[in-house]
Amino acid sequence: MSSPLSRDEVAKVAKLARLRITDAELEQFTEQLGQILEHANDMTSLNLAEVEPTGHPFGLINVMREDEVRPSLDRDAVLSQAPDAFEGRFGVPRIMGEAP
């Protein structure tokens, strides 16, 4: 059975997700993800012409909150969880490129 997904595609997805995977894992995930896609493809065998697209299982819309300030977290508590902090800010490895 030919996989609906190529190794290159899985490698690309892994790269986009910043996942480092071995060749063996690449093989394994290509097969596993392929099976999931196969399953999704089963849907196409059904006639769904009369079925409305569903964005949410209960059809909820406009779930919103009032624009009221609520307490934020304590900064020291927040920064104590960070690997590195300096002058009230999170320290991160130097960013070479610009943000998209």
Partner: peptide, 21 residues
């Protein structure tokens, strides 16, 4: 008054990381 998806204050010039959740 608040951010888009949480109740933290939307204010310019606060001390760093004081309006976070």
């Amino acid at each position: 008054a608040t951010k888009m998806f949480c109740g933290c204050a939307n204010s310019f010039g606060s001390e760093p990381n004081t309006n976070v959740c």
